[in-house]
């Protein structure tokens, strides 16, 4: 949690500092609290294992997709390799639990630190490139990480994944081996991650990112260290992606090379596209939509590629926007006067 504050301080040196709404942060905390309470209540009223499983999985994907949107939507950095951090997080956490038998919170802290270090190294190289070349080099690094996971059999188990399950010892009375506790843990992780990311996005650091996205030269001219800001954004996004990986690893009690394959990065991109990149909650909506779509379609037909492909085409060619983009448009149209902040956020 200390990270965002550090960013804020750094970005505070920059001339373009919009005021941070303390009220809006409080509002966000209240919304998050209510949402968590509602979801827990839902589980109590309706203890369906299907819903529990679905929510845990969506939580992992939503954290991942939102972190990707920090890069894509806010910083204009289209990473094709974001899945490497999701996979790295899952493996790092799984390995720490299997080999060192530490308490889960410590393992998560270690995962965050290790991912930040990885993102620092990878980012330092990738950030130098822009536009489509940035996309390509992130893809190349992801494939390198993937190749490493598959090739380093003694450590990772290679293509078989981490075998033998991930131990889930109780901590502070929380036993993640039970579905209910894991469910609550996942939604709390989701809520906390979203809150922190929201705070970062709305901080002066977040607005610096938007400025770099819209006009890098101008930002640079105004004295912003573009390289550093982009690097920090890359690291923050990477760290949150790894948290998504941790939740997924806890859910499937394992880690697999597929977590860091290009398909994972691709799914992240579809989630933010379907949910909408101009709103903060878009990626979460996208995670729900894509997961639902996937589950429903694979249940109903063997030809889910065909079905999913057609749905994606409708999205890309017919709607051309994510669902929350429509909601945001509608919101703006219905209340022009108070839509100022939203409009500033919307991306052309």
């Amino acid at each position: 949690m200390s990270k965002p504050t550090a960013h804020t301080n750094r970005a505070a040196d920059t001339p373009s500092r919009p005021p941070i709404g303390r009220a809006s942060l409080q509002r966000d905390i209240i919304i998050a609290g209510v949402a968590v309470a509602a979801l827990i209540l839902l589980r109590v009223i309706w203890p369906s294992p299907a819903i529990t499983d679905f929510t845990i999985r969506v939580a992992a994907y939503a954290i991942f997709a939102t972190s990707l949107n920090l890069l894509v939507g806010y910083a204009g950095m289209v990473s094709f390799g974001h899945g490497m951090f999701f996979g790295f997080g899952a493996y790092c956490f799984g390995l720490v639990m299997q080999r060192l038998a530490l308490p889960i919170p410590i393992a998560i802290l270690i995962t965050i630190t290790a991912t930040a270090a990885l993102a620092l190294v990878v980012g330092a190289i990738c950030i130098r490139l822009k536009d489509i070349y940035f996309s390509f080099i992130t893809l190349a690094f992801q494939m390198l990480i993937y190749s490493l996971i598959v090739a380093w059999v003694p450590l990772t188990g290679g293509d078989q994944g981490l075998q033998g399950g991930i131990p889930r010892p109780s901590f502070l009375g929380i036993n993640l081996a039970t579905p209910l506790h894991l469910y609550i843990f996942a939604i709390v992780m989701l809520a906390l991650s979203l809150l922190v990311m929201r705070h970062i996005a709305e901080s002066s650091f977040g607005y610096t990112l938007r400025m770099i996205r819209d006009n890098m030269e101008r930002a640079s001219f105004l004295g912003i260290n573009v390289y550093l800001v982009r690097l920090i954004a890359f690291m923050v996004a990477g760290v949150f992606a790894s948290l998504g990986g941790v939740v997924m690893a806890l859910f499937v009690s394992g880690a697999y090379p597929e977590f860091s394959n290009w398909t994972m990065s691709g799914e992240g991109i579809f989630m933010i596209m379907m949910g909408g990149i101009s709103t903060f909650i878009g990626p979460t909506a996208g995670a729900i939509i894509l997961s639902l779509l996937n589950d429903v379609v694979t249940r109903r037909t063997e030809h889910h590629g065909l079905a999913l492909g057609i749905v994606i085409l409708v999205f890309a060619l017919g709607l051309k926007k994510g669902v929350t983009d429509f909601a945001a448009d509608w919101w703006r149209a219905s209340g022009d006067s108070k839509g100022g902040k939203q409009a500033a956020e919307a991306r052309p």
Binding site: F270, G305, L306, G309, I310, I312
Partner: peptide, 17 residues
């Protein structure tokens, strides 16, 4: 570029099926 990616991906899925 993401929209182009989406359209292409849709076709990869459709053609494979």
């Amino acid at each position: 570029v993401l929209m182009q990616l989406l359209v292409c991906y849709a076709f990869i899925l459709i053609l494979d099926d």
